[in-house]
Design a binder for these strands. Structure first.
Length: 487
RNA sequence: GGGCGGGUAACAAAGUGGCUAUGUGGCGGACUGCAGAUCCGCAUACGCGGGUUCAAAUCCCGCCCCGCCCUCCA
């Protein structure tokens, strides 16, 4: 099966062919670290985490680089305001932001190069740009001359003349063309600065990505990504710089993810509606937030709102239930009632359809739809106990394998916490505590079973409610009471 | 003003020139002390107006509306 990726450069889905067979090199624009990571960051980095997971699933060896912008106007402003050294300030937030993403269950990239640690490489690239005639020095600053780069505007589909017309850019005497952008900024008091052939200063924003991506991945590399908002000017400028300096093609596939809104509004500082990851996970579990994002296609803009998250939570529960049911079924040593070839072919079919969806520009909502269709089939077979435990295991392993691509099933069970609560409950009902949680639960259910036999409904219902509270779902069936852990 | 992307049932969200998307919610049924889960079935769609076609929500044209970018931004 062929993987197709929607390439912003061509605005088409293209067959994916890596530069080097069996390997994928991807670079995603990372965070500017001056405050906590927010759910917009989460949306983007989760999307690329899943892209990376799927590429790995397809057998590619993926090298994933994400930069850290730790030298920047906003960082300097924020740090100076608090009287902290800007580099210390950004160092603090680098750790914090990465931990925020950890907390959400987003896998870390392979490399996190920092702007402040790659200044020399940036200077070299700027020198090459100057040597090749694409830039100029102006009073300690260095600028890129957009008119010299004939391809300028190709990614964002803009023409230089049109941009000038509607530009809101302040004309600067230092720039020859208002659209020229800074490669190097001369030092101002209170700013971190480095020595350069043009005097003390610091790099412009765009140059770090051109530099670090080519340094870590070589040119051209396969995938470059980021939020939609970065198409212009950031990515446009990155292309100009990298190609002007090296004469090589920069990137083969550009992937841009849709920007998140909150209650249909853009998330921005001015609206004051930025939701930090830290705050979001107080209200919603990480897996719920992840599932919400995965239910949206990466290129469309998801809207973060109460109802949508509740939906995600309910849907997720359904997935956890089959997982638990399959686990139990496998342990119960069932024999096949009839030919289970059909069931096994359904498992295979699910895998194929899932891959088909993911091969189509990483279409996670479609993959989820296939997942739910599969769940219905599994439930049907489980209900009638038609299949052997071995066949169930096949379904189970497939569910886990594919689910993990969508970042499902990665939550560590909060075993100790649950155990404590169960033990408390056991004590209440005079059940002797045992080593295994499962056994304690079984004991408690015996108490409840007795109550039910005596038609002590209040007591029986109370036990059920209490277990539910802990996350244990109770189900009375003809063959007795079953239970499962639901997060 | 220029560029880009959208408008799908109660909500969320895919997709597609004719064949059930999917999940949550709703309704009915099986099951059941109740509840829940599960299964079976049902209902509610494709912004508006034209056109092409045997057939369009899907293609074309026009219109309306929304969002994003053009300034730091994932």
């Amino acid at each position: 099966m062929v993987l197709k990726i929607y390439n912003t450069m061509s605005r088409k889905k293209e067959e994916f062919i890596p530069v080097e067979k069996g390997k994928v090199k991807m670079y995603v624009c990372g965070m500017t670290v001056y405050s906590d990571a927010h759910i917009g960051h989460a949306r983007t980095y989760l999307a690329f985490d899943i892209i990376r997971r799927y590429l790995e699933y397809k057998g590619y060896k993926v090298t994933y680089v994400q930069n850290i912008t730790d030298v920047d106007d906003k960082i300097i402003a924020a740090a100076n305001k608090k009287g902290i050294n800007p580099l210390d300030y950004s160092k603090y937030f680098t750790e914090r932001c990465l931990k925020d993403l950890d907390a959400l269950g987003i896998r870390r990239a392979d490399f996190y190069p920092k702007a402040s640690e790659n200044i020399n490489d940036m200077i070299e690239i700027i020198q090459k740009i100057l040597e090749n005639g694409y830039g100029y020095v102006s009073d300690g600053d260095v600028y890129f001359s957009v008119e010299k780069f004939k391809e300028y505007g190709r990614l964002s589909r803009r023409k230089l003349e049109e941009m000038k017309a509607g530009a809101r850019i302040e004309p600067t005497e230092k720039k020859r063309n208002p659209l020229d952008f800074a490669l190097w900024k001369s030092a101002k008091p209170g700013e971190p600065s480095w020595d350069s052939p043009w005097g003390k200063g610091r790099p412009g924003w765009h140059i770090e990505c051109s530099t670090m991506s080519s340094k870590y991945l070589g040119l051209p590399f396969d995938i470059h990504g980021g939020g939609m908002d970065l198409i212009f000017p950031h990515h446009e400028n990155e292309i100009a710089q990298a190609e002007a300096a090296t004469g090589k093609k920069f990137v083969n596939y550009w992937i841009h993810v849709g920007l998140l809104t909150v209650n249909k509004e853009k998330m921005s500082k001015s609206l004051g509606n930025i939701i930090n990851i830290r705050d979001a996970i107080k209200k919603w579990k990480p897996d719920v937030i992840r599932f919400f994002f995965v239910s949206n296609h990466h290129r469309s803009p998801p809207d973060f709102n109460e109802k949508a998250l509740e939906n995600a939570e309910a849907s997720l529960k359904k997935i956890y239930r089959v997982k638990q049911d399959l686990e139990k079924y496998c342990k119960e040593k069932h024999m096949a009632k009839s030919d289970e070839k059909i069931f096994l072919s359904e498992v295979k079919k699910f895998k194929n359809r899932f891959e088909e969806a993911m091969d189509d520009d990483f279409n996670t909502p479609r993959a989820i739809a296939e997942l739910f269709s599969f769940i219905r089939i599994v439930n049907r077979y489980l209900k009638n106990k038609e299949i052997s435990s071995k066949a169930a295991e096949k379904a189970y392993s497939t569910l886990l394998e594919l689910g993990k691509i969508l970042t499902l099933f990665q939550e560590k069970k909060e075993e100790t916490e649950v155990k404590e609560k169960i033990e408390k409950l056991a004590k209440k009902y005079g059940v002797k505590t045992k080593d295994k949680i499962d056994e304690i639960i079984d004991e408690i259910l015996k108490i409840r079973e007795n109550a039910r036999k005596n038609k002590e409904w209040v007591k029986a219902d109370a036990i059920r409610a209490e277990l539910n509270e802990i996350g244990i779902e109770i189900e009375d069936t003809r063959e007795g009471t079953r239970w499962r852990k639901v997060k």
